[in-house]
């Protein structure tokens, strides 16, 4: 789509409007230019197609207006219609005086005009009947359109919700991936960092071989259910999950994790710790809250490490 090239010393409004129209044509596509003659009709149709513009009582409104008109009385005019009467003597007198009447004006013209009018009335009545039949068909079309648009509206709404759900899941996955990436260097640096609670148990001999390796690996291993053959990840994950479950159990309704931890940590640690918990909770409470529910069984590593990484991102 072309950009606007306008200099303040040479503004040409007509040229700008030409560019605007060109952009509109580009947006619409070439097909529409062939149908420009039917634009008016299309504009009317757009109101029905636009689900936000549709009236919920459209069909009722339309139905109200679709009613068959009563047929109007019509008269057949012939030559003698003007002089007709059910009284015999009066008819005779009229017939007798007709030549005298013709001296004053020409009733034949009047009769002819009324005869034509009668035919016109008949034709108009037929046209009205046909139009009303067409209205019934139009009603059908609009009714079907309304139903279809409603269905499409609901479908669009569902799709929108689905997109939102997928979007939040994608966000969670991205956060999780980032947490995992943050965790990998931490693990590779574990031999140098004394973090007893996160050291994997099955590699105890290797860990023991490292000078200064913490001895708390043994108790941690025992608390994981006494499974000496369990892989490191699963043990750590199980431990993390247990911790998380404990946290959830302790959290009361209406109380966030941060509230809970802040109250706990107030007796244990200083203001710095509180701050880090708050930030960690922010990371979860926004979108990880629901997403963490769905991702419970995907390993505890990320959940332990996630908040701290997230907080550093934010």
């Amino acid at each position: 789509m072309g950009e606007f090239n306008v200099r303040s010393d040479s503004v040409d409004v007509d040229e700008i409007m030409r560019q605007i129209r060109a952009r509109i044509r580009e947006k619409r596509g070439a097909d529409y230019t062939e149908q420009e003659l039917q634009q008016l009709a299309q504009v009317k149709l757009e109101r029905f197609i636009d689900p936000k513009g549709i009236r919920s009582d459209l069909v009722q409104q339309f139905r109200r207006h679709v009613a068959t008109s009563p047929s109007l009385p019509n008269f057949a005019f012939g030559e003698d219609t003007l002089y007709e009467t059910h009284r015999g003597p009066v008819a005779a007198i009229r017939k007798l005086l007709r030549p005298i009447l013709k001296l004053f004006f020409n009733p034949d013209r009047l009769t002819a005009a009324l005869h034509i009018q009668s035919q016109v009335n008949e034709q108009a009545q037929e046209r009205l009947a046909r139009q009303e039949a067409r209205e019934a068909l139009t009603y059908e079309v609009i009714h079907n359109l309304t139903v279809e648009v409603t269905r499409l509206g609901i479908e669009t709404h569902n799709l929108k919700m689905r997109v939102e759900s997928l979007s939040s899941r994608l966000d969670f996955s991205e956060r999780r991936a980032r947490s995992m990436e943050g965790l990998t260097p931490a693990r590779s640096a574990q031999p140098q960092r004394p973090q007893p609670s996160r050291q994997p148990a099955p590699t105890a001999p290797a860990a023991a071989a490292v000078p200064g390796a913490p001895e708390s690996a043994g108790p941690l291993n025992a608390s994981s259910g006494g499974r000496p053959d369990a892989p490191a990840g699963s043990e750590d994950g199980g431990n993390g999950e247990r911790r998380r479950r404990r946290r959830r159990r302790r959290r009361r309704p209406g109380q966030t994790l941060a509230d809970r931890q802040a109250s706990e940590s107030s007796s244990q640690s200083g203001a710095d710790q509180d701050q880090s918990v708050d930030r960690a909770d922010d990371g979860w409470s926004d979108e990880g809250g629901d997403a963490a529910e769905t991702g419970d069984d995907r390993g505890g590593d990320s959940i332990d490490a996630g908040p701290s990484d997230d907080s550093s991102d934010q």
Binding site: V11, D12, V13, M17, I24, R28
Partner: peptide, 11 residues
């Protein structure tokens, strides 16, 4: 040269 005009919704 200080304004634009419209004759339909698109414009």
């Amino acid at each position: 040269r200080a304004g634009l005009y419209y004759e339909n919704f698109d414009e």
